[in-house]
Amino acid sequence: MGLQQNFHDEPVSRLSLREPVTAAPSETLRDVIGRMRDKKLGCVIVVDGDDKPVGIFTESALTQLLGRHGGQVVNEPIEKHMASPCTWVKLTDPITYVVEAMQLKNVRFICVVDESGRVAGLTGQKGLIEFVADHFPDQVMVQRIGGTPYSNKREGA
């Protein structure tokens, strides 16, 4: 089966979803940066009292803020700087929704919600690349992982 068909037939839950970092709107950037570091994630999903997504704050937005305003900006609440609304798909939606959302909204992260709209995971460009890699192991998984220059000398005698 081709990848395009898989995008249409397989649900978002088949992507390798990350457990997201979530935050309340009133938390400061300083509060959440430590959690982003610990979980090695590039974004935080801002949620309401029902754990439903109301916004997203990315490491890219953090760089923009530091570049414009300097280090004190980390003491401000996340709700002041989050992007809202947050782009989301349901666990049961086809993967093609993720591809379309990234294409149309030019975003890197997509929040995944369950049937009741609560945050259930995180995916995006990385999840899609890993899905492609898993789909074509004969091409992707056999590659030399870059970084070593080819030898100019022939091996052996």
Partner: peptide, 11 residues
């Protein structure tokens, strides 16, 4: 090959 770039990212 293009797959090499995918490999660095995915693997």
């Amino acid at each position: 090959s293009a797959a090499a770039a995918f490999s660095v990212m995915a693997v």
